[in-house]
Design a protein around this nucleic acid. Structure first.
Lengths: 127, 127
DNA sequence: CCAAGACATAGAGGGTCATCGATATCCAGG
DNA sequence: CCTGGATATCGATGACCCTCTATGTCTTGG
C-alpha cells in the first residue's frame, strides 16, 4: 500500500460500454476502460496474458512464466501484480506455487468496446 | 524529429496475431501490438477515438474535438498525433480544417487479439 | 527449529508521458 | 502583403512506469 497499483474496481469488469462507434464515451466510461488497456499495453504483460491463456487448463504457474523471459523474477512478479490489479488475471496459491488464470470478463469488456460496429456508413471491409 | 512518437508501422495494421489464447505471443508480435494498445490506453484518447468513430460520416474536425474537452488545444493536438502515429486515425486536411477518421484495420488488429477464443476447456460462460 | 525454495515487497535509478504556455506554420480574405 | 483563425511544434515540468538488487514472507521437509 503505497503507490496506486491496484486501485481498480475488478467488480464490474463485465462490460462497461457500448462499442466505440456507437456513441461518444463518457469521461467515466473512458476512465474505467483505460486502465484495463494500460495494463495490457506492455509487451511483457501481453505475452504473460498469452502464456496464461494458451496454457492447457487455462492457468500457468509463476515458475513457468519466469522461465519464459530474460527478466528478473521481481519484474515478472510486478507485471503479474499489475495484471491482477487490473482484474485481468486471477490469482490462486496452491502450496508453494501460485497459479494465474485469465479472467474472461475483463477481456470481454475490452472486446465489447472494440467490437466491429462498422461505423455509420464508413469504410466497409466486407460489404 | 526528436522523440519517437510516430516510429510505428501503420502499413500492416491488418491483424498481426492470432487470439491471445490460441498460442503464446512471440516477442515480436507483442512488441508490434503493445504500441497500439498503449495509444488507446488513455482516457482522453479513448474518448477522442469514440468521438471520431461515432460521428456521422465517420470523421470529425479538430475544432469540434477541442471543444469536447477541458484541455488545451496543444494537448488535444498531441493526443491526435499519438493516435495518428499509431495508425489508429487517418488525417485529412481540407482547407484550414483537419479531419480525423478511424482506421478500421487498426482496431481490427486489436479485436483479433482479444477475440473470445473461450480458451481450451476453461471457464465456459454460456455452456 | 532450521534450511531451502517460491513468490512478493521495498526502494532506487533512468526513461517515458501528459500537460501546459509560447510560438511557428499554413490557409483564406481583403 | 498583412491580418486573423485553425493546427502543429517546442521546451519545460511534474508524474508515472520498467527494471534492477536486496530483502521479506510463506510453505515444505528433515
Amino acid at each position: 500500500m503505497s503507490k496506486s497499483l491496484l486501485r481498480l474496481d475488478p467488480v464490474g469488469a463485465a462490460a462497461c460500454c457500448a462499442p466505440l462507434a456507437a456513441q461518444p464515451l463518457s469521461r467515466d466510461q473512458a476512465e474505467q476502460i483505460a486502465p484495463l488497456l494500460k495494463a495490457l499495453a506492455d509487451p511483457v504483460r501481453l505475452r504473460l496474458m498469452s502464456l496464461v491463456a494458451s496454457r492447457a487448463g487455462g492457468e500457468a504457474c509463476v515458475c513457468d512464466l519466469n522461465d519464459a523471459f530474460d527478466l528478473s523474477q521481481p519484474t515478472i512478479s510486478h507485471h503479474l501484480k499489475v495484471l491482477h490489479g487490473a482484474g485481468l488475471l486471477n490469482r490462486d496459491k496452491r502450496g508453494v506455487w501460485v497459479y494465474y488464470r485469465v479472467r474472461p470478463a475483463a477481456l470481454a469488456s475490452i472486446a465489447a468496446l472494440i467490437a466491429s460496429t462498422p461505423a455509420p456508413g464508413s469504410v466497409g471491409v466486407s460489404g
